[in-house]
Design a protein around this nucleic acid. Sequence first.
DNA 1: CACAGAGTAAACCGCTCAGTGTAATATAGT
DNA 2: ACTATATTACACTGAGCGGTTTACTCTGTG
Lengths: 207, 207
Amino acid sequence: MTVTKKRLSERKHQAILDAAAEEFMEFGFQGANMDRVASRAEVSKRTVYNHFASKESLFESITRQIWHQAQTATDVPFQADVAIADQLLNIAERELALLESPHYLRLTAVVLAEFARSQELATQARDWVKQEESGARRWMDQAVAAGRLNTDDAETATTQFFSLIKGRAFWPQMIEHAPIPTAAEQARIAQSSVALFLDHYGLKDDR
Amino acid sequence: MTVTKKRLSERKHQAILDAAAEEFMEFGFQGANMDRVASRAEVSKRTVYNHFASKESLFESITRQIWHQAQTATDVPFQADVAIADQLLNIAERELALLESPHYLRLTAVVLAEFARSQELATQARDWVKQEESGARRWMDQAVAAGRLNTDDAETATTQFFSLIKGRAFWPQMIEHAPIPTAAEQARIAQSSVALFLDHYGLKDDR
DNA sequence: CACAGAGTAAACCGCTCAGTGTAATATAGT
DNA sequence: ACTATATTACACTGAGCGGTTTACTCTGTG
């Protein structure tokens, strides 16, 4: 179990994960072909099955990676001494930054498609979406508690805020394979979402 | 080619379409099984293939039905003499009414999953989404032209309006299989979406 | 060199499934 | 009764694919 030896095996392991991600991105879960995964990874099929018990478990591993990435994206602390608009802008930008990775985007599409297809996974899906917005949700709770937003329903507000962003810079990319917005477009989306949101929820003396 | 003769064949045709819809809803496109479609439709497999050349073409036929349903949902005329808020509320309610049909919902999920999976269908998907919002989009254009909305970007406004609704009453049902909102919840969603939208885009003297 | 753990190639198993061919039967108008 | 068209049962083809087995090789270490 020396260093180099371990590394070889680990490289294979990672190669398989990468190849599988590619494969899932291109063909979805059902369409993915384990022979192709092996050949993509430049590894024998048997090696794939030595590292992962089944297609399912391989998919799970990939899913968990995506999970983690989204989870930490919008997790920012509430700062009482910073303008609400600026903080929301920051959150929006973090969310939008996720789109920059086509890898993330395509894999998320596959995972969501699986969720949409199977009710069994609905519970997982619920966790998933919650995780993704949980950081911002905490922020929103604190903003409401601090009396800096004109509502007592932080959950609705959170959903609405993200809906405004995702409706223009997530779902179109998921479903229509729309091009990823340029930095300028992202800025516009972030700003107009915040503006729309704060015209309703913002306090007059907070700008 | 008499009436009754035609009717028999047409009944089979429709039975196949219905059965296929069921099957696609339950298993998705790839998972759907043509033998099961036939047995669901209480029709021989050969008859299925006499009516539809392939699984794909059967799926296309189903897709087109959904198309049509969504297309006409929010197609309302702009009325210069009615308050903007009331008209928007009407559009929102029409959009929300689509959710009442689990049939529509589940099939849309399957279709969208297929779109998310394949770039080839991206073009079709783009048309699809445009169609769906085109009614409201026309309304929005006219409202802007009539100077009743405080913007000159009807497209963004349309997207934002629908994002607010769908973020709470479409995507959660698609992805997380969230329960369909009750009538009371739907009313709340419609009202708060319109309120949020008009606080930004509405004119002060229009309420 | 010897050894062990990991990797490899390729055949293989079992099963699923889209789609077809066929020959018999049913339907409904004339 | 005759005819044209639909429908049916069912066997079958051919391909794809998840996963396994086997017999062999490679790599790095002690």
